[in-house]
Write a protein that binds this DNA or RNA. Structure first.
Length: 789
RNA sequence: GGGCCUAUAGUCGAAUGGUAAGACGUCUGCUUGACGUGCAGAAGACUCGGGGUUCGAUUCCUCGUGGGCCCACCA
């Protein structure tokens, strides 16, 4: 079998088909002889297309999977899909308009299935070696069941509870939002100074939200602020005449406004924090559509925020309580879809008790090896800063239903029975309770992180297959983006430890993200998006994979570089051409290792260097240093093997009658060995090209199933390296002399005066044959090389 | 405001306690018994600024400045 004439997409597709047909990447459930290496791959969000971030990070753990396979591990590498989320709902609604719940969900599923198809094709075209028999989707009933089971178990232990809590709310869309559905915006607004009454005297309170004053439940001052602390007052009367507590709080900013702040439920997030901290009552100041409620004597019920503010300010002005108004520049949160301001809305939600678990989560995170190690700091910072429990419910349709029943009369919540799983409120909307109560199914769905925080359990068949579980849990590796340490890693460690008592993975590998070539984020609005498909078509998948390896500054963001991509492609061409030469030179060679005495010093040199390269690359792969591993092989292959060694063998290959058959066979064996071992150690990265080369010598056997070629110390040869370093220098100077005189490289050099500290008898042949020096005058002594052309 | 990361030729970047790879680009040659998607050669860096440790720092520490990511705040 011969290597292909030209390398491209067709070659890669040929091998992708071959791997699939030959089940090259199957995990063997029944093989207990090999250690298992399980990878908790990120389930890709089903957005419809892979982006460069996917290409980078998914290449990363494909390198690991392939390396571990060659190291003899039984690699378990499933790929999942994170299906549910607001973006999908938005797109489906745009396409079909408003639909009944049931119908809507069906459309979401259809849409998602279609997009998974596209993305799976893209993954395959990048040569990812996932075992697709274990593909999973978070929208599948089986996955729902598992998530629900995990929630019931955590409900049993008291980790999950049902409670009223303020959440981000979009009055425009009438929906609760996740924090990630929000973005920051800026605006100019007005800061109003309104007089409250403290111990019979007026006290100015500055506020941007006077319309919420009826929901004022306390006024705070800084305990270090002598203006207020010395008064000893316990209550204060608002401009609406209501008496509320007057409390010290170090977070009250003495510098801002008049140094006192009114706490309303809810003007902003700080209000929520203070509400919990001081155990303040809650006044529901607004309904789900942003209309004021419970305003009492203020008389602004039913008004929208802007109208209410206007009306109330007029009233304060008339009462002489509005003292002054200043301009204020502020940032605020908007819903990322509709760009309208967000409010806080009190509602019944489901929670997980993360706040009390911070230290435990940190302790468990420390049992995991973080690569790079500073990554854990993101988690620690986050865990120590968690202010309230994790709201795990969302008022959405396309999501995992929460497995609970609600008493229609009292609102009390009851867990579903295990037999009722997968729990689906559309199929079983109500039932009678034990005491005849009318129970209705909870229709809220789970936050997407509830789904994804059990991936290590889901892929390990937790609660389903004990044997499978014991082999694949905890995952050997969790690869993920550094930007989701606070969510995916944090929630996974929390939930999996709660459920099993064992940290979910042994190592966590963090990658950064890909920036546009200009160093900015890739975004549609900037028009600087680069499509992986285009790169695969223009440069090949292996070029993209090499680019990913070379971009591998761990957990750091890097701009995309067409130069790297071009270099990667050139390197592939180089590999192919070198393979062609070796193949041609080895025609008829039976592949037997020569007797060591037939090896020339150049042979021993390149073999010695090969061992060192293998050692380095192996260490690099163990430490996930893909950049260094790739660079090391590329440099060795191109600039030592091709530029020097290949040239040193040509005369032996083409003129065996002059230089001897044994010398020729030795050269053939070395060429073949170096080529194939380079193909092997680069196989995790250049998966297709390595296979092309490997199978041209070993038809029917995948390089990805071959044993990793570890270094053989017996082949290390310092003497050969020293001599060849000198030989290379002579060769280089010879080329330089020819270049200076504008002579072709095959021009002859009449004579050379050479001296160095050792005999050159065993490298003279190459000086004659490769550097084309006719006469060599050698004298042992100080290093010196002079040519006479 | 907080945490973390980072600063090396025109560009991207590697490495090192003893003044620095490689790639791309530029310039000059070479037509080839694998490759012009190539080969050979050349030019191009006081390794962000200040201070410290050291015989010696680009490398370690510290301050500053710039850049990035994340988080918090914004009454």
């Amino acid at each position: 079998m011969a290597v292909c004439e030209r390398y491209g997409k067709e070659t890669e597709e040929k091998w992708q088909r071959w791997w699939e047909e030959n089940r090259t990447y199957d995990y063997d459930e029944n093989d207990a002889s090999r250690p298992v290496y399980s990878i908790d791959t990120p389930p890709a969000f089903t957005s419809g297309a892979l982006h460069m971030g996917h290409a980078l990070s998914y290449s990363y753990f494909d390198f690991v999977a392939r390396y571990k396979r060659m190291r003899g591990f039984n690699v378990y590498y499933p790929q999942g899909w994170d299906c549910q989320g607001f973006p999908t709902e938005v797109k489906v609604e745009q396409k079909y308009g408003r639909l009944p719940r049931d119908e809507f969900r069906k459309r979401c599923v259809e849409w998602t299935v279609e997009y998974i198809g596209k993305m799976r094709t893209q993954m395959k075209s990048l040569g990812f070696s996932a075992d697709w028999r274990y593909e999973y989707r978070t929208m599948d009933p089986e996955y729902h069941k598992l998530v629900q089971l995990s929630l019931l178990q955590m409900h049993k232990t008291g980790q999950i509870y049902h409670s009223k809590h303020p959440v981000y709310w979009c009055p425009n869309c009438g929906s609760a939002l996740a924090k990630t559905d929000t973005e920051d915006a800026e605006r100019d607004t007005e800061l109003h100074y309104v007089n409250f009454t403290l111990s019979g005297k007026p006290v100015l309170v500055a506020t941007t939200r006077p319309e919420l004053m009826h929901a004022c439940v306390a006024v705070l001052y800084n305990p270090a602020d002598a203006r207020y602390s010395r008064l000893g007052a316990k209550t204060i009367t608002t401009a609406l005449g209501k008496e509320v507590p007057f409390l010290p709080d170090a977070d009250a900013d003495m510098e801002f406004g008049s140094g006192v702040v009114m706490v309303c439920t809810f003007g902003d997030k700080q209000d929520v924090v203070w509400m919990y901290k001081h155990k303040l009552p809650i006044i529901e100041s607004m309904d789900g559509h942003g209309r004021i409620t419970n305003s009492g004597s203020a008389g602004i019920d039913g008004l929208k925020v802007a109208e209410a503010r206007k009306k109330l300010l007029e009233k304060f002005r008339a009462d002489g309580k509005l003292v002054k108004t200043e301009k204020l520049h502020q940032s605020y949160k908007v819903h990322d879809r509709c760009k309208k301001p967000i409010e806080y809305q009190l509602s019944m939600q489901w929670f997980a008790k993360v706040t009390e678990k911070s230290e435990e989560i940190i302790a468990n995170a420390k049992k995991i090896k973080w690569v790079p190690d500073f990554g854990i700091q993101y988690l620690i910072d986050w865990a120590r800063y968690v202010e309230w429990d994790w709201v795990i419910s969302r008022q959405r349709v396309f999501g995992t239903p929460l497995p609970f029943w609600l008493d229609k009369a009292t609102g009390a919540a009851y867990p579903a029975e295990e037999a009722e799983l997968p729990f689906d409120p559309d199929k079983t909307p109500k039932k009678a309770g034990k005491n005849g109560e009318e129970l209705v199914a909870e229709t809220s769905t789970c936050d997407c992180w509830v789904d994804s925080s059990i991936t290590p359990l889901a892929i390990a068949k937790w609660g389903e297959d004990e044997k499978f579980f014991s082999r694949t849990y905890p995952s050997s590796l969790r690869p993920q983006g550094v930007e989701i340490v606070r969510t995916w890693a944090f929630y996974t460690i929390y939930r999996c430890c709660e459920l099993t008592g064992i940290p979910p993975f042994r190592e966590i590998l963090l990658n950064g993200s890909v920036l546009a070539p200009d160093g900015k984020k890739m975004s549609k609005s900037l028009g600087n998006i680069i499509e992986p498909d285009k790169l695969i078509a223009d440069y090949s998948a292996d070029a993209v994979r090499q680019w990913a390896a070379l971009s591998g500054a761990m957990a750091k963001d890097r701009p995309f570089s067409y130069q790297d991509m071009q270099y990667s492609k050139s390197f592939l061409t180089k590999m192919l051409n070198a393979a062609k030469l070796v193949e041609k030179s080895c025609a008829g060679f039976e592949g037997k290792a020569p007797d060591r005495k037939h090896l020339r010093v150049t042979d021993r040199w390149i073999l010695s260097r090969l061992q060192k390269v293998k050692k380095e690359v192996e260490a690099d792969f163990e430490g996930f240093q893909f950049h260094h591993a790739t660079k090391t092989v590329q440099d060795f292959f191109w600039h030592e093997f091709c530029d020097y060694y290949l040239e040193y063998t040509k005369h032996r290959l083409y003129m065996p009658e002059t230089y001897g058959q044994e010398s020729r066979r030795a050269a053939q064996w070395v060429l073949r060995t170096v080529l194939l071992e380079c193909a092997q150690i680069l196989a995790p990265v250049t998966a297709h090209m390595s296979e092309e080369i490997w199978q041209s010598f070993h038809p029917g056997n995948s390089v990805h199933r071959s044993a990793w070629p570890s270094a053989d110390d017996a082949l290390l040869d310092e003497d050969a390296e020293k001599k060849c370093a000198f030989l290379n220098e002579v060769a280089s100077l010879a080329r330089q002399s020819k270049a200076e005189r504008k002579l072709p490289l095959n021009a002859e050099i009449a004579s050379a005066d050479i001296s160095c500290g050792f005999a050159i008898t065993d490298i003279e042949e190459e000086m004659h044959a490769t550097a084309r020096v006719k006469v060599i005058n050698f004298a042992e002594g100080e290093k010196s090389i002079k040519f006479a052309l």
